[in-house]
Design a protein around this nucleic acid. Structure first.
Length: 543
RNA sequence: GCCCCGCUAGCUCAGUGGAUAGAGCAUCUGUCUUCUAAACAGAGGGUCGGGGGUUCGAAUCCCUCGCGGGGCACCA
């Protein structure tokens, strides 16, 4: 039952549907978690769904299904209620589950080694990361962790822009500072630009004497490299490590954009207009044409992106590419998709995940003006774990209205501590048990676990593979913190039963009973750790 | 004008077309001589932005209107 109990129930339900005489296509039976305890653990509206197919009373169908269905390992018992078929996990199965839980429980080979590149937070390296950029990095990294956990071969990549308008302006700004001047209109005015100019003056001998058209590219590459180092250090504090920092200029040196352009030209996707070269799908009149090469001969970022597609799908052979973008780039999605298709790739294999913005309550951020709260400052103030947890808690579709004051004062109120405390508690109680009982039985007699607060911990653990499967399939890591919270709640309740009445403690006189409860602690602790790992949040042993 | 996202408890947000819409924070009331009280138990709090429609069934799907945010470059 490697797929988790929900899958086993679903399989059994489908089999029962056949047994009661449904031959054709079976509609979605809506098997999901039951919402109220009276409905058990999983609920399905199978009777209602099949009523139309069988032209029979939903209640009668549900009753027959409930009588017919047999879940593997007797994991759950079915019960009809109206047109619904509800399933309750059996206590015996819940107890037996504990022995199967080990580090990495819930991992499944959904990917079969599929080679996926996840490219995320590829911000122009023209300034430090601010709190908005944190969202993409954390989202992207957690998606990577989920994919790795489920059998995909994942590569994390940062695409370093180096030849576009913004980075040229950045280079020009450094040039201006080097000569004691104000940056040009639309340039970068932050303090760090002046610092970069000073460093460049020191590290690049003779740079001051070069004319701007020669000095700017050198200064630009120098300054970008410095900024990349800084970005690398910032994300490392959040437990994020890229496999590859892929420079745009390398793309041009390898000739890939040129190759992509030739291919598109041959396929009829390019045309000359107003002295520029445009991309457009002749079959799609809706989509506007886009400039690939400007009338001044300079390529646009789009030209680089064409080569970048070639680099990834063809030269490096990724089967799927996932890109994480801020929602302000959403208008660029159709263009990238049609470009991928025009180059001969399956646009479905280019997955673009958009996340909404992070706004500061105090006012807008402006990178070029040098006014922003940096990601580094945020990590300084609230810590990596809280930052990651806080960002992951929100669906990418929601705009985060970041109240900095609140984040700073959040302290112990932060939900991350709730989950971490559950983990630390379990570690602590396991240590206390081995101190009290140096020689515990090797095997746990789980039949001694009879209390609802004990079985509820096991029940939560049974749900974990479902969460992994859903979060992976939908690429939605925000499901993780919600699960972790639920598991932590059942752990705290279980622990607290011992505070209320000492015979319910984990560590009791009876070594057999202690051993059985320890089994529960171990399983819960390992699963908490696994879930926190997938979020990139630490699981402290002591708090 | 066109496109995207959001609108759910006082606040911040979950919620694969199913039964009685949830959590955290905040507020109020209880619980530590005991394995960690960063915890537990309980209470109050809702026209799921408005209006239509589809459906046996809608917070969820469709249409429409409103409000907020973002985007519509030879910037990225």
């Amino acid at each position: 039952m490697s797929g988790g109990v929900r899958e086993a129930i679903h399989d059994a339900l489908l089999k029962a549907v056949r047994e009661i005489g449904v031959d054709g296509e079976i509609p979605d039976l809506e098997l999901g978690r039951a919402k109220v305890p009276e409905h058990g653990d999983y609920a399905s509206s199978a009777g209602l769904k099949l009523a139309r197919v069988l032209r029979q009373d939903p209640k009668a169908i549900a009753s027959r299904l409930a009588e017919t269905v047999r879940v593997a390992d007797n994991a759950a018992r079915a019960e009809a209620a109206g047109g619904y078929v509800n399933f309750r996990l059996t206590d015996d199965w819940l107890r037996a589950l504990l022995a199967r839980i080990a580090p990495g429980y819930g991992a499944r080979d959904l990917g079969d080694g599929e080679r996926i590149q996840v490219e995320f937070a590829s911000i122009n390296p023209t300034g430090p990361l601010h709190i908005g950029h944190g969202r993409g990095t954390i989202l992207g990294d957690s998606i990577c962790r989920l994919l790795e956990f489920t059998g995909h071969a994942v590569q994390r990549e940062y695409y370093v822009n180096s030849d576009n308008t913004q980075t040229r302006r950045f280079g020009a700004s450094v040039y201006a500072r080097l000569h004691g001047q104000e940056p040009p209109e639309g340039g970068y005015t932050g303090e760090y630009v002046t610092e970069l100019a000073e460093m460049a003056g020191h590290d690049l001998p003779g740079i001051e004497t070069l004319p701007e058209d020669e000095a700017e590219p050198k200064l630009r590459m120098y300054a970008l490299a410095k900024m990349v180092e800084r970005i690398k250090a910032t994300v490392a504090r959040l437990n994020i490590h890229y496999d590859e920092w892929f420079w745009e200029n390398r793309l041009w040196e390898s000739g890939l954009p040129q190759k992509a352009i030739e291919r598109l030209r041959a396929a009829g996707y390019l045309k000359e207009k107003d002295g520029a070269l445009w991309f457009g799908d002749p079959a799609d009149q809706e989509e506007e044409d886009r400039v690939v090469i400007r009338s001044n001969g300079q390529p646009t970022y789009f030209a680089s992106d064409l080569g970048y597609l070639l680099s990834r799908f063809e030269q490096r052979g990724y089967e799927r590419v996932i890109e994480v973008w801020g929602a302000d780039h959403h208008g660029y999605v159709p263009r990238m998709k049609s470009a991928a298709a025009a180059l001969g790739f399956d646009p479905e294999k280019l997955v673009i995940i958009l996340h909404q913005m992070v706004n500061l309550k105090e006012g807008k951020m402006s990178k070029r003006a040098g006014r922003f709260v940096t990601l580094d400052e945020l990590v300084d103030r609230v810590g990596s774990d809280a930052v990651r947890y806080f960002y992951l808690l929100r669906s990418p579709d929601t705009t985060i209205e970041f109240d900095l004051e609140l984040a700073i004062t959040q302290g112990n109120e932060n939900p991350v501590y709730y989950a971490q405390y559950a983990h630390a508690r379990l570690v602590n109680v396991e240590a206390a048990a081995s101190e009290r009982h140096p020689q515990l039985p090797e095997r746990a007699d789980v039949s001694l676990l009879v209390h609802p607060w004990e079985l509820d911990v096991a029940r939560q653990l049974a749900f974990w593979p479902d969460v992994v499967a859903d979060a992976t399939a939908l690429l939605e890591p925000h499901r993780l913190p919600y699960y972790v919270h639920d598991l932590a709640t059942s752990v705290h309740r279980f622990y607290h039963a011992g505070n209320a009445q000492s015979e319910h403690r984990v560590v009791v006189d009876d070594p057999e009973l202690t051993r059985a409860r320890l089994e529960l602690c171990r399983a819960a602790r390992q699963t908490l750790k696994t879930a926190l790992d997938l979020m990139g949040v630490s699981a402290p042993e002591r708090m």
